Amino acid sequence: MSYELQHYLPLELGLYQPLTVNEENTSIIKPYIKNPLKIQFDCYCIECKKETTFKFYQDKFDQYYTNQYQMDIERRIDSKLPIDFIFKCQRDESHVFYFTLLINEDKVIKIGQYPSFADLQLHKINKYRTVLKNDYRDFSKAIRLNSQEIGAGSFVYLRRIFENLIEETRQIASEQEANWENNVFEGSRMDNKIKLLKDYLPDILVENRSLYAILSKGIHELTEQECLDLFPNVQLAIELILDEKIHQKEKQLKISSVRNFVSTTIEKLKS
């Protein structure tokens, strides 16, 4: 069983999102029922606060127990009862990852999971705290709402972050350009605002400025499911913008450090 198949159920299948089992994807669920002992996947451990490997856990898992386990699984499937899958962190076995499936004929539905998708993702955005400042809370809210299957609501927070990034850049431009015209900027649509700020914004944002239109459309026109489907790539786009801001900030710190070094060293050498 490939890694991609092993991590699909715990890390990709959303809560209450039905997975129809067919000939093409039966290999996703079959190993969990027939041979779970071999299942493992890499994931962030919220207790260790590190990436780790989680392995399927059952005490005294021998051949006899394997047979009993499979019989119990089959009984639960026939009775339409929930099935729990428990995995243990290989750094510390007291740290667990588990999820619960309900299998009904050809449908597999995840009805519970710990840690939640939001818990697993929030550690990844911690590095953006310094560049987002007050908007960091909105970013985490967007991720939590998305994990709770609230699509349009999550887009509201992402769009607010986008607008605040543009406003922050406008303030920089107005301070640095003597002929900056705020009236022209304020009267422009977002697409033109980004063009006016192209010298101050990451190229990736200028090239993909229609991202704002996607966010607005998601809030006003798209269905919840459409927003949920779009969320991962919209989040990725926001993160790319933030990555560039972090890069520029680090670059300026290095430039400043080199300048200070050269200046102070030259003065020392003169004396």
Results as ranks from 00 to 15, higher is better:
5 L>F: 08
7 H>Q: 12
8 Y>S: 01
10 P>R: 09
12 E>V: 05
13 L>Q: 15
14 G>V: 11
14 G>M: 06
15 L>V: 15
16 Y>R: 14
19 L>D: 12
23 E>S: 03
25 N>V: 07
26 T>G: 13
32 Y>S: 00
33 I>W: 07
34 K>Y: 13
35 N>M: 04
35 N>C: 11
42 D>S: 13
43 C>P: 05
44 Y>W: 04
44 Y>K: 01
44 Y>L: 03
45 C>D: 02
48 C>Q: 11
48 C>V: 05
49 K>Y: 02
49 K>M: 02
49 K>E: 01
51 E>K: 12
52 T>I: 09
57 Y>M: 04
57 Y>R: 13
62 D>M: 00
62 D>N: 09
64 Y>S: 13
65 Y>Q: 06
65 Y>W: 14
70 Q>H: 14
72 D>I: 07
74 E>V: 00
77 I>C: 00
77 I>Y: 10
84 D>S: 09
85 F>N: 00
88 K>E: 14
92 D>I: 07
95 H>R: 08
99 F>A: 04
99 F>W: 02
100 T>W: 08
100 T>K: 08
103 I>Y: 01
107 K>T: 03
107 K>P: 07
107 K>E: 15
109 I>F: 14
109 I>K: 08
110 K>D: 04
112 G>P: 03
116 S>P: 01
117 F>M: 06
117 F>I: 02
123 H>Y: 13
132 L>H: 04
133 K>A: 06
137 R>S: 11
139 F>A: 14
142 A>I: 06
145 L>T: 03
146 N>E: 10
147 S>R: 06
149 E>Y: 14
150 I>M: 05
150 I>L: 05
151 G>S: 06
151 G>E: 13
153 G>H: 09
157 Y>W: 02
158 L>A: 09
164 N>F: 04
166 I>E: 02
168 E>H: 10
170 R>W: 05
171 Q>H: 08
174 S>K: 15
174 S>G: 15
175 E>F: 06
178 A>M: 15
181 E>A: 14
184 V>N: 10
184 V>E: 14
185 F>A: 07
185 F>R: 06
186 E>R: 07
187 G>V: 09
187 G>C: 12
188 S>I: 01
190 M>R: 00
191 D>S: 06
191 D>I: 04
196 L>T: 05
197 L>Y: 00
200 Y>P: 00
200 Y>V: 01
201 L>T: 10
201 L>V: 10
203 D>A: 15
206 V>Q: 12
208 N>K: 06
209 R>S: 10
211 L>R: 01
212 Y>V: 00
213 A>H: 02
213 A>N: 03
216 S>W: 11
218 G>H: 09
223 T>M: 05
225 Q>C: 08
225 Q>A: 02
227 C>M: 01
230 L>K: 11
231 F>P: 02
232 P>I: 05
235 Q>M: 05
235 Q>K: 08
236 L>T: 10
237 A>M: 14
240 L>Q: 09
241 I>V: 11
242 L>M: 11
244 E>V: 00
245 K>R: 15
248 Q>R: 13
249 K>S: 07
253 L>I: 08
255 I>G: 03
255 I>H: 10
257 S>C: 13
257 S>A: 09
259 R>D: 06
260 N>D: 12
262 V>N: 02
263 S>P: 04
264 T>D: 12
264 T>I: 14
270 K>I: 12
271 S>W: 13
